[in-house]
Structures are given as structure tokens and as C-alpha cells.
Nucleic acid binder design. Structure first.
Lengths: 161, 161
DNA sequence: CGAATGTCAGCACTACTGAAATCG
DNA sequence: CCGATTTCAGTATTGCTGACATTC
């Protein structure tokens, strides 16, 4: 690997050298920190990542059954139940039976839900801006491209899930 | 499962907002997948990330008290206790009282622990290779550099905690 | 005394498994 | 009967908080 950068992956300066060579560790650490920043930001408005994933999926793809929503959002069907309960209680979504298939529920966003998604989007955009601050626009594009290829590779192969 | 998803783009036009949103999801997904591959690989030999973090820290910096080891490895002191119990039971480390300070324990690696670290290093190197397969050597260097800068940025600032 | 240390109990979030009940 | 869907119960890992007794 080209050693053109003096990498520091953890706070402090006592990081084992071996960590620097492991991609999974690096992405993991970066993501963990970014995730925490995002999590704290969401927590500030009483939301969790699961809430955002579900609301974002609904905003992007429209109403869906819970099974379809689970597939789209990446939240497990079993976990989705509780998340939807909370979102219903907060008035962000509605859950009603599907007249075409009585096994299913149809999940739809409310007006408040639409506003909530926009609010959470703004918050996460701010987090992204903060996290990516040291990179230029071109570098962000480059990072996006590289990560995209790795991600597509991981999704294509049967590595996980 | 029918995936007759009609796409709706509420906030209509393709703004930088959307790009940023996709970016955050991309980083998150890539990290989650990479983490899972690594986790599964470690699980295959009966290890967890916590075990590796602790053993790697010990290998790199030598014997330490639990408080120091917690700071170095990133594992919380309260969680470290159980991790060390397991590593002791597996014969990878030894835990003894510090004669110089009776509050402290001194954690040292055994011969088996040294071998274990090498084993886990090899496994994670394999994961690294597998995950980064689609990228050239130069691209990996670029990716490491970019992620490293973001990570250093996050560590330097006091975003999280 | 105040501070550090190891330990324990417990919580929250994410991720995942298994099974029951209902319906197609 | 087989399969899909929703739901509940439970588990594991990681991350983190609070408390306690012991020792410095």
C-alpha cells in the first residue's frame, strides 16, 4: 500500500499497526464514529436509525406491506413490528389491513411523516457535511465511487446475509 | 415477492441533498457488510471482535493493567472484565495482581495467545483481500487515504462523546 | 479525603432466529 | 397441505452508564 498518508484511526496515538492494514477495521471505525454522530443527532429529535430507515423507504418507494418494507429498508420483519408501533404512536405512519390480502398490512405515511422525513434528512445531511468536512468535492466523489464498487462487490457475492 | 415499486421522488429534483443521503447510506451499508464478513470469519474460529481488539493491543503494547488495556483497545473497562475472563479460560492470556499497585491486575499474553493473534491476523487479512478484491492496489491506497482522513477528522474533533 | 481500579448489574440499539397464528 | 405474512419471544454483540468495594 502506498504510504502517502499518515493515518490515525483512533483517538490518541496508540493504535496497533496491524489495524491500519485492515479495511474492515478502518471502515468499521469510521462508520462507527459517523454512526454515533448520526445517532446522537437523531436522538436529539427523538428518533433512531431504524425509524429513519423505515420512513426513508416509505418516502422513496411509497406504501408497502410490512414484508416489502422490511426488504426495502433492511430492517428485519420481526424488528419492524415494534418500529412501526412507535411510528404509529408518533403519528408518522398509518397501519391498516390490506383489503386485497388479509394477511398483510398496508403502511402509509401521514402528513406528519412526510415532514418528519424531511426533518431527519436535513439533520443527516448536516451530519454528513460535518463528517466529510476535510474532503474536497472531488475527493468525496472519489470516495463515493470506490465505496460504491466495494459495496456492489459485497452485495453481488454471497458474503453476508 | 412482487417488487412493483413505483418510484416517487417527493423532493423532486436531483439536489446535492440526495447525493449526500445516498453517500451516508453507502458508507453505512459498506461498513455493515464488511463488519459482518469479518465477524463471521472470526466466529468461524470462535472469536469475537472484542477478543481480537484486546489480543492485538496486548501484542502491540505488551502487558498492561485493565484500565490501560481498555483505553488502548477501545473496549470499555466494564466490558473488558468478561472478555478477559473468556481469554483466560481459553488460555490466551494471564491475569495476575500487580505487586506495585494492589488495585490493579497485570494482563499478559501466553504462548497460545501469541499464536492466536497471528491466526486472527491472517484471517482478517483474508477478509481484507476478499472485500477489496475489485479495487486495484492504487485504488485501495486512495480509499485508505480518504477514509483515514475522515476518520482522523472524526477522532480529532470531539464529535462523538 | 479524593481519585483510580476492577467488578457487577443493567440498559439501549442493532441484528438475527424460531415459532405461533392467520390467511391465500 | 404448503407458503406468505404478521407478531411475539428470545438471543447475541457492541456500546455505554451507574454503583460498589478496595486500594492509592
Amino acid at each position: 500500500m502506498e504510504d502517502n498518508a499518515d493515518l490515525r484511526f483512533e483517538r490518541g496515538d496508540q493504535t496497533p499497526e496491524r489495524f491500519k492494514r485492515q479495511f474492515s477495521r478502518l471502515v468499521g471505525m469510521t462508520a462507527a464514529q459517523a454512526r454515533k454522530v448520526a445517532g446522537d443527532a437523531l436522538d436529539g429529535v427523538g428518533a433512531r436509525r431504524y425509524h429513519y430507515m423505515v420512513l426513508a423507504s416509505l418516502a422513496e418507494f411509497g406504501p408497502a406491506s410490512q414484508a416489502a418494507l422490511a426488504d426495502r429498508s433492511g430492517v428485519f420483519r420481526s424488528d419492524l413490528v415494534a418500529v412501526l408501533n412507535e411510528l404509529v404512536a408518533d403519528g408518522y405512519i398509518q397501519r391498516g389491513p390490506d383489503p386485497a390480502d388479509k394477511r398483510r398490512n398496508v403502511i402509509t405515511m401521514t402528513e406528519a411523516g412526510e415532514r418528519r422525513v424531511i426533518e431527519l434528512d436535513r439533520i443527516l445531511d448536516g451530519v454528513n457535511e460535518k463528517v466529510l468536512a476535510p474532503l474536497t468535492k472531488a475527493e468525496r466523489g472519489e470516495l463515493f465511487s470506490l465505496l460504491g464498487r466495494v459495496n456492489a462487490h459485497l452485495a453481488r457475492e454471497d458474503f453476508a446475509r
